[in-house]
């Protein structure tokens, strides 16, 4: 959209640096250094599924388009593959910036652009909080209840059970409480 000449009639954007300042403070990443070389976008394996390209996210943060960024699919669909972070000529850790934007998005109460991605990570962390280690079977069950996505992947789960790759019981560790405290600290 931003690069489309047809949008030239779009309302003018009045840059507002408050969001940029907040994002830089939270993430420690110098987003203001980005000069739109697009190396991040060109190497991004999931750009085809994104609504904003990574370089657009950078520019929009610079311009203060807070809501557009925080409700985007992009911040959730980023696979944390670290290709952009590795290649950015300005040493911006873009994958880490995506983490910070996810956190800001959750804190702002905006509905996540990819609800299922959120539910997956919630189910994962809930399992670790409960048991101290990930209990895959319980995690998948919780994810399915949360998304009501009950029937996908059933065949794969069954094949895994047959091969002894999914355990029915969680592992036990002594440090369980210690791990739980890390979650409950705040």
């Amino acid at each position: 959209m931003l690069n489309d000449p047809a949008t030239i009639d779009a309302p003018a954007i009045w840059p507002d640096s408050a969001f940029l300042t907040a994002v830089e403070a939270r993430s420690g990443e110098k987003v203001s250094r980005c000069y739109q070389c697009r190396k991040c976008t060109n190497g991004c394996p999931v750009s085809f599924a994104m609504d904003l390209m990574p370089n657009q996210v950078m520019r929009m943060v610079q311009f203060g388009l807070e809501e557009e960024v925080l409700r985007s699919k992009t911040i959730w669909i980023c696979a944390s593959c670290q290709t952009c972070t590795t290649r950015c000529p300005n040493d911006i850790d873009i994958a880490h910036l995506m983490d910070s934007l996810r956190q800001l998005s959750r804190a702002s109460g905006i509905a996540a652009g990819e609800e299922k991605v959120v539910k997956f990570h919630e189910a994962f962390l809930d399992s670790v909080r409960r048991h101290g280690r990930l209990f895959e079977f319980g995690m998948v069950g919780r994810y399915k209840m949360a998304t009501l996505d009950l029937f996908s992947n059933i065949k794969i789960a069954w094949e895994m059970l047959k091969r002894g790759k999914l355990k029915f019981l969680p592992g036990k560790i002594k440090g369980k409480r210690e791990v739980r405290q890390m979650f409950d600290k705040k």
């Binding site: 983490d99 997956f120 962390l125 670790v128 990930l134 890390m182």
Partner: peptide
């Protein structure tokens, strides 16, 4: 008595936990 490292999930929601 090793515990989970948080893997691909903890950093999504919480830099400290990660």
């Amino acid at each position: 008595d090793w515990s989970c490292c948080g893997a691909s999930s903890a950093h999504f929601f919480d830099d400290e936990l990660a």
